[in-house]
Every structure is written in structure tokens, then in C-alpha cells.
């Protein structure tokens, strides 16, 4: 009975507020629909290939960057001058082969 009352009250409030009901639905849980289709597997294979190549390229870049050495003092200067987090400062320095002046100029023009 109590709950009935509540829902009634809600319905009354809802009269002036039709959007609220829709908004409520936004957070509903819903199981996603299953679809049928023959060649889903082929489709997957077609895209996995491209994905692999991308990943390789990225790994190469990371590898190259990892080999660059940077000085701690240089990182300190970048952090202080541009108020960036340490990892970001290190990365910029690495991208500029550890050259402080080049890194500062790069951040200046970013």
C-alpha cells in the first residue's frame, strides 16, 4: 500500500516532468541483442591482420624511445619550467634524443 502511494505520488510529479522518466531509463540494465549473420568470422579475420601491423609499429617506436637516456637534472628543469608531470617531461626529452634545449622548444611550441 505504501509503495502504491509512492508510485502514485511519482506519477503525479511526473506529469510536469516527462523527461525524467526517459532519463531514468538511461541507467537501466539491458542485455544486448544477439544478431545473426553468416560471415562474422571472416570479417573478424580481415580486421585482425591490420591490427597486428599497427601494434608492431607502435612497439618499434617504444623500443627506440626506451633506448634514449636522459639526465635527471634535465627532467627537473622541464618539470619546473613547464609544470608538467615527470613522465611527460621524460617522454618529451626522449622524443628529442635527450636534448634539453630542443625539448624546451618543443614544449614552447606545443
Amino acid at each position: 500500500m505504501d509503495e502504491d502511494k509512492d508510485t502514485q505520488a511519482q506519477a503525479q510529479q511526473g506529469k510536469h516532468n516527462t523527461g525524467a522518466a526517459d532519463l531514468e531509463k538511461v541507467t537501466d540494465y539491458a542485455e544486448e541483442k544477439e544478431i545473426s549473420g553468416g560471415n562474422l568470422d571472416n570479417a573478424i579475420n580481415a580486421i585482425t591482420d591490420k591490427r597486428r601491423r599497427d601494434a608492431e609499429q607502435k612497439a618499434d617506436l617504444e623500443k627506440r624511445l626506451a633506448s634514449v637516456k636522459v639526465k635527471k637534472e634535465d627532467v627537473d628543469v622541464v618539470v619546473q619550467e613547464f609544470e608538467v608531470p615527470r613522465p611527460k617531461a621524460e617522454r618529451v626529452l626522449k622524443e628529442n634524443n635527450g636534448d634539453l634545449q630542443a625539448a624546451l622548444t618543443a614544449l614552447l611550441n606545443a
Binding site: 553468416g38 562474422l40 580481415a46 580486421i47 591490420k50
Partner: peptide, 15 residues
């Protein structure tokens, strides 16, 4: 975009 299009096309083919 290339991959995005590719995936969408592959998917639409099956539908």
C-alpha cells in the same frame, strides 16, 4: 578511418 570503414563494411555485409 580506413579500419573503421573496413569494420563497418564487413559488418554491414553480414546484416
Amino acid at each position: 578511418y580506413d579500419i573503421a570503414n573496413h569494420i563497418l563494411e564487413e559488418f554491414c555485409k553480414t546484416q
